[in-house]
Design a protein around this nucleic acid. Structure first.
Length: 257
DNA sequence: GCGACAG
DNA sequence: ATCTTGTCGC
């Protein structure tokens, strides 16, 4: 059993490295990265689970108007999740469901007079901040061929010197920075790789969010948009997707019993 | 060998 | 991810 999982992980690592060849680290955006002029639509995705059914979940894709944060598109769907969650391989579990919702939006969008396609998608999980620099956000971005930004609420330990250990990052956040609003702390490993930033996204929050690039966007532009969209600790597109998918889980549970 | 471990 | 209300503080 343990051996089987090891084999699967080996295969998944190969797939990650193969897809990583398509990863684009520079801006390829339909808006101005300096001024954010022409940025109108930001997507957010999230998945909420049924506590009693580990294989069933609600996936949500929402699109917000920028800068009003009005929801201009929302889609929630019950999806089967067959694969387990394994740290470092989150994308294999969640990408298929999100991909399905996105393709549904692309189809619907052909009938729309004004496009509702997101110009960038916020992902609930890391991108470049990953053992092989190819987390969920990168994976989704490459698959959909759309700019993505990864946002983690918890730090993912990466083996790249003490600089990327949990205790080092947490301690540095607590002691060295004494974070002010919008303060950021670069996450750089012993190899000099810049994985992303820990950011104090709101005046009232003490814990940082961990921002990394996904696809077709650079880290400075990603951070700029993150700070513009953080009404709360988590960027609004992700927070809304989270709220909507949870609400669906609650209502389905209620109507079913 | 043991522990750590995005969602 | 999920179990979960009130409550402390500005």
């Amino acid at each position: 059993m343990i051996e089987e999982i090891k084999k699967v992980e080996e295969q998944w690592i190969k797939e990650q490295l193969e897809l990583k060849k398509k990863l684009i680290l520079k801006n390829e955006l339909s808006f101005n990265p300096e001024t954010l002029e022409n940025l109108k639509r930001i997507g957010g995705v999230d998945i909420s689970f049924f506590k009693e059914d580990p294989n069933k979940a609600v996936a949500s894709l929402i699109v917000l108007d920028y800068p009003s944060f009005n929801i201009i598109y929302e889609d929630n769907e019950i999806v089967p999740l067959t694969l387990p969650y394994i740290a470092g391989f989150l994308a294999f579990r969640e990408v298929p469901a999100i991909e399905k919702l996105y393709k549904k939006l692309v189809e619907k969008d052909k009938e729309n007079e004004e496009s509702k396609l997101p110009q960038v998608i916020f992902v609930d999980g890391n991108g470049y901040l990953h053992p092989r620099q190819f987390g969920f956000a990168c994976h989704l971005g490459v698959i959909l061929d759309i700019p993505t930004i990864g946002v983690g609420k918890n730090f993912l330990v990466i083996e790249d010197g003490v600089e990327m250990s949990m205790s080092y990052v947490k301690n540095k956040w607590k002691t060295e920075t004494l974070p002010q609003h919008k303060d950021r702390q670069p996450l750089i490993g012993k190899s000099k790789t810049l994985y992303g930033y820990a950011i104090k996204s709101n005046e009232t929050t003490t814990n940082p969010i961990f921002v990394s690039i996904g696809h077709k966007i650079d880290i400075n532009t990603a951070i700029k948009i993150v700070l513009k969209t953080c009404v709360k600790r988590v960027p609004e597109p992700i927070r809304q997707a989270d709220l909507r998918s949870r609400k669906c889980v609650r209502e389905i549970l209620k109507s079913h019993k």
